[in-house]
Each structure stands twice: as structure tokens, then as C-alpha cells.
Deep mutational scan, measured.
Amino acid sequence: MALNTPQITPTKKITVRAIGEELPRGDYQRCPQCDMLFSLPEINSHQSAYCPRCQAKIRDGRDWSLTRLAAMAFTMLLLMPFAWGEPLLHIWLLGIRIDANVMQGIWQMTKQGDAITGSMVFFCVIGAPLILVTSIAYLWFGNRLGMNLRPVLLMLERLKEWVMLDIYLVGIGVASIKVQDYAHIQAGVGLFSFVALVILTTVTLSHLNVEELWERFYPQRPATRRDEKLRVCLGCHFTGYPDQRGRCPRCHIPLRLRRRHSLQKCWAALLASIVLLLPANLLPISIIYLNGGRQEDTILSGIMSLASSNIAVAGIVFIASILVPFTKVIVMFTLLLSIHFKCQQGLRTRILLLRMVTWIGRWSMLDLFVISLTMSLINRDQILAFTMGPAAFYFGAAVILTILAVEWLDSRLLWDAHESGNARFDD
């Protein structure tokens, strides 16, 4: 018995066209964080690309023209004298008006014999932002004059995390709450300039795509075929072959399989920071003279006294001054041990922890910024005066060393310790 099946006739004509040209192939790229070699397709503007294995951002879609970056830099340069030299806060102490600005706080630190601690604050609040705007201006002028731009481009990517104007702005709020127990506070004209400078700096850093600047100024022929001998440069993120001198053909720094002496430098910085954190938390970090009496505060006791007036601000200072430094030390110690013992479990967790400490590390400088600003506000000789204690130097040095330890660690070593050939990683 035959089955009668109805015929289905399409209502619209289906047209099949042959592909007349070869589909576009992607360029081969190595991930600078996990060293995976993959094919990167062509990316349009405002599109980002991520590593298929570790999800690290390979290409950032946010990109401004150099002219727009230069305009932002010149605007920031105009704001800087007002943000640093004009009063941020006014207080009335014992019937006398006192003005506080950024430069005055750094000068008070240096004047009291601790120039190293003052230079830490100076670099993060004044030096690094000033280098940022002058570097962008150098790129703008240098591109037109045919100057060598490689050193500036190499420095810009590392400079971003040292620009800490946003953290200093939080420190202004913390210092205001600490001082309000002794005097009446009012915002100064410099505060508005400083807030504007923070906003412009944040926007500029978020749109400063150094890798795209490398592509514009020093374009290189990408690798179009897969080759395990391809290496990625950690300076400019170019994937290719080393030249005859073993250097990256684009930025001219040595092109090595792994960062040289990464573990040794990381261990040295980490152990030194552990040693410095002990006096930083045991010795007094601030000293207040009130009517001839002397009151010393460690980091913890200062947080407890701050909690009596504002528990939320005390929580912020606790996280930045105690929780973050010790968390960074514990995480980095764990990561280094996992590399030495070739741990194969929990790779995803370790990668996330490394990215976390990379982002939060700079916030530990908050305590030094609060001390710097408070020193310029309260300084009335023996009637009422505020000065920093010996722990300030140890704390600042420990924070900087932990930042350097994270920067010096080559994250690809975590993958080397893991089993080879993993296309995915999980716990």
C-alpha cells in the first residue's frame, strides 16, 4: 500500500549564491595573561575582544583620537594649579581661619623630617597626573615632529594605576569627618577644581587605549598563520617573532617567553612588605597634641575612634588600611606557593584573586592621604596640633611594595603550573 505524501511548494523562490571570495581570516594573537594562541577576527570600533580561555580583555573598544586626548590633557593642565594650590577646605580653629590644600599637606610631611613619605604622596597625587598630561601632550606634538614615541607609550600603561586623584578625593571626605570634632569646616574653591580634575582624569584614563596608539604610530604586520613560536610582548602586546637582537619589532624591548626574574622580584617585594606591615600596624601612625597632652593612634585605634562619629567612614578606612593590605599579602603568598608547588586545582579562583588584588591594591594609600591633609588643617603649635607617627613611612612603603609585587608577577606562570593543553579552566 503506497502512502500519498503531499508536496510542499515554497511560496518564495530560494536563491543560492556561491561564495565568490575567501572568507576573511583572523590574525593570530597570544593572550598576555595566559599565553593562549588564538585567531582574533577583525574588530570594529566600539567592540571589545576577550581571550577565549581566561576571559582577559585583549582589545578595548573604547578609543579616543589623539586630538581629543590632547584637549583633555590641556584642560587638566589648566585645572591643576587651582586643584593643588587653592584651598580645598576652610576650618575655623580657636577663632582663626585655616586653609588646607594639597601642596601644603605634602610640605608639612616633608617639613617634619619625613621627606620619603611626603614624596610618596607627591608622586601619586601630583607627579603621576602631571606625567600623564605631559605624556599625552608629548605624543600629540611628537607625532607631528617625527619624534620617538616608544618610551612614552611604554610608560603610559604602567602609569595608570599610580594616578590616585580619586583616592585622594575620598581622603578629603575622611579628613573632614575627623577634623569636624575640633573645628567648623567649609569647602574651599580649590575643592571644585579638584573634583573637576578627578572627573576629567577618570574619563581620560578610561578612554586612553595605549594598544590602539601603538597600532597608529607603529603598525606591524600581524601573524596570519598559526605558529607556536609566536611570542607576545608584555610592553606593547604585539604578537610576532623577535628581531635579530631578540627584541620586539614594535617597542624594541627584549621579547622573552616569560617575564625575567618574575618570581624572585615578586618574592622579594612580598617578604619586604610583610616585614614592614608589622611596625606599620604596631607603631603610632598619627599623633595629636591637645592642650599640651599627647595622644597617639595606631591604624586600628584611629579607626575605632573614627567609628564613634561615623561608622560608615570608619568601615571604608578599615577596608583600605587593614583589610586590603593583608588580603593582598595572603593572596600573593598563596599564588606564589601554588606556582612553586605546581598546583593544578582552583586555577579559576587564583586568576580571579590576582585580578582582584590588581584592582584594589592602590586604595591602601588612602590613610597616607588623610594624614597629609589633616596635617595641613590642624597645626596650632602646642594648643592643638596633628602630626604623623613613625608607622606612616612603614605603611606607605608596604603598600608600594605590594603594588610592585602584583605588577611583577607574570600571570602566565600560573598556567605553566597548571596542566598543559587546557582550553578551559575551572575549579
Rank of each mutant, 00 (worst) to 15 (best):
L3P: 13
P6K: 10
T11K: 08
T11S: 12
V16G: 10
V16F: 11
R17G: 13
A18C: 13
E22W: 14
L23R: 14
Q33M: 14
C34H: 00
M36L: 07
L37Y: 12
S39F: 12
I43N: 14
N44H: 11
H46F: 15
H46C: 13
Y50F: 07
A56V: 14
A56Q: 08
R62Y: 08
W64Y: 11
L66H: 13
M72C: 09
A73V: 09
F74Q: 07
E86A: 10
L88E: 02
I91P: 01
G95D: 02
I96Y: 08
Q104W: 03
I106L: 04
Q112A: 12
Q112W: 04
G113W: 06
D114L: 07
I116A: 12
I116M: 07
T117M: 02
S119M: 01
M120Q: 04
V121K: 04
F123H: 02
F123V: 02
C124F: 04
C124H: 01
V125I: 05
V125G: 06
L130Q: 04
L130N: 08
L130D: 01
L132S: 06
Y138V: 05
G142L: 06
R144Y: 13
L145R: 04
M147P: 02
M147V: 03
N148H: 02
L154I: 08
L159P: 01
L159W: 01
K160C: 07
K160R: 14
V163M: 11
M164G: 02
D166L: 15
I167H: 02
I172T: 12
I172G: 07
I172Y: 03
Q180K: 07
I185H: 04
Q186V: 09
A187D: 08
V189C: 09
L191C: 09
S193V: 03
F194K: 04
A196N: 14
A196I: 15
L197F: 07
L200K: 07
T201V: 13
T202P: 07
V203P: 14
H207K: 06
H207I: 15
H207W: 15
E211K: 15
R216K: 07
R216Q: 08
R216M: 04
Y218F: 03
R221A: 07
P222K: 09
A223Y: 08
D227C: 09
L230H: 13
V232G: 11
C233G: 00
L234N: 08
P242D: 04
D243K: 06
R245H: 12
R247G: 04
R247H: 05
L255C: 07
L255Y: 10
L257H: 13
R258E: 04
R258H: 09
R258N: 03
K265S: 03
S273N: 08
L277C: 07
N281A: 06
I287K: 08
I287V: 09
Y289F: 07
L290D: 00
G292F: 08
G292L: 14
R294V: 04
D297Q: 07
D297I: 02
S305W: 01
S308H: 09
I311A: 10
V313F: 06
V317S: 00
I319K: 04
F341V: 11
F341M: 07
K342H: 15
Q344K: 15
Q345C: 12
Q345L: 14
M356P: 13
D367R: 00
L368C: 10
V370H: 00
I371T: 01
I371G: 01
M375Q: 14
M375K: 07
S376G: 04
L377T: 05
N379Y: 02
L384W: 02
F386D: 00
P390S: 09
P390F: 06
A392H: 01
G396D: 01
A397C: 05
A398K: 04
V399T: 08
L404T: 15
L404P: 01
L409R: 03
S411P: 11
E419H: 11
N422W: 13
A423S: 15
D426W: 15
